[in-house]
Amino acid sequence: MTRAEAFSEREVAMCTVARMVENGRTYWAAGGGTPLYSILLGKKLYAPEAQYVTEDGVIAPEPMLPYEPMMTMLAARASYRALAWGTMNTAGIYSQLGYMDYGVLNTLQVDRHGNINSTFLGEWGAGGRRMHGPGGADTIAACCWRTILITDQSKRKFIEKVDFISSPGYLDGSEGARERAGLPRNTGPWRVVTPWAMYDYQDRRLRLMARVPWVTVDEILAECEYKPLLAPEIQVLEPPTEEEVQLLRTELDVRGQTTDAAGGWIVWDGEKYIRGGGD
């Protein structure tokens, strides 16, 4: 596989998630952006027998790509050649019953225990900033066996405690907190993927487990509001390949709606990767 010469940070995160997609597993893609493109990329290149649902209850579609703008759910091309069509409640019920192995989510803020905020910055109802709300992510985070969260590596997004829990992680981090709140047992956050790093959880606390070649552990930690646990050995993630970014740009994220989002670009200068742009 050929190394990609230039790619965006968001493309890095999507490629990292795509490589985690497994045959014979089910995925619930939250919304229609990064999570859906990551799953489709993984399905096309690495795990053709991975199956996914979206919030309209469609099972295992073979979408006619590319999508028209904003048409990643409910539209004919999005639900094309599915095995079954459904509704939002059928999607919810599949997850309640335990059929959904992985939920893939994108978020604005995540805290040490994997709690997600997509509702409100600041104190609720007291002049803070309202955002769009959880959508389907609350049910995904509650009921899929494992959740994979995609976010940016930024101090503002990787925070000690979210202002508002829109979708549940390990809540206060204590053992059994999710069950005490009525959520199904043995569920919860599994991985967090950023353009710079990958994290898992140890005793319900975030732990850095891998980094991309062009950033150091110290640079990653500088973009966390709190210090996550560190795995004994920090692995190095493989950068995107030509094949991956080609597919993202020509079939999935063709208008760059996702790849044009915040973050820098990475360029291979013949010897090493150089990061530029972004914030």
Partner: peptide, 9 residues
């Protein structure tokens, strides 16, 4: 329902 618990929602 099996979701929504534990959230600020």
């Amino acid at each position: 329902v099996r979701s929504f618990g534990g959230t600020d929602g």
